[in-house]
Design a protein around this nucleic acid. Sequence first.
DNA 1: TTTATATTTGAACATATGTTCAATTGATTA
DNA 2: TAATCAATTGAACATATGTTCAAATATAAA
Lengths: 118, 118
Amino acid sequence: MNKQHDVCEVRAINKKKVKSVKQLMLTDNEANSLSGTFSVLADPTRTKIIYALSNDELCVCDIASILGMSVSAISHQLRILRNMRLVKFRKESKMVYYSLDDEHITTLFNEGLNHIRE
Amino acid sequence: MNKQHDVCEVRAINKKKVKSVKQLMLTDNEANSLSGTFSVLADPTRTKIIYALSNDELCVCDIASILGMSVSAISHQLRILRNMRLVKFRKESKMVYYSLDDEHITTLFNEGLNHIRE
DNA sequence: TTTATATTTGAACATATGTTCAATTGATTA
DNA sequence: TAATCAATTGAACATATGTTCAAATATAAA
């Protein structure tokens, strides 16, 4: 920690603003939860999976085929989407069929899609 | 590439579904652009910065003070937000004041915030 | 039971990302 | 001019993340 850092971390330029914004500031938990939510959508493989599932319920093998990727890679990503409750699944014999489970995030997803497409 | 992969990448379970979803599928560019958009919001420091700037125009030093982080770390993150046109800035003597610049993403940001808060 | 197949899993690997540290730039002031 | 300060930058470092590979599960069929 050198002098420059001390100055800027301890003495703010506009103390009133700093104080008032500090009071409103997100907690670490809120910021982590918020950025964590966006992180789920921050990978092209996952956005493709979500997009694919927005059209149809699909098994792992078909998702892999659609994306042209290995089954293992898709399965790893599906686990992340499962843990975040973004997708649900049902088993039918050997196969596992995935579908979307979270309306909020798919709304977010579609807003993002509109954003890049307009 | 072993046998298992070949089977699942070449032969899909439900060929019709796979073919139709494949035709609708996002291009790599679209998927990268979409996930890239979400990536900007996928870091707690950046979400805090955006949140702070949604309240007020702020200089780098004050943002650092509000977040309790080094000026350098904040400046690096502001560069990312600048490159993505999420924030704009004006110079006033030695100081640089940042403010939000992109309505679309701040809408996205607020939707995410509602999502985690409800 | 043995074989085949759909999926999951863990470890290894490479790459991407965020922060720190030190140095630099640009503007102000003594 | 020299000194000071806000901000930026690049390199180094540690950590996180995504894919691959090999092995393990689980279910169905021969």
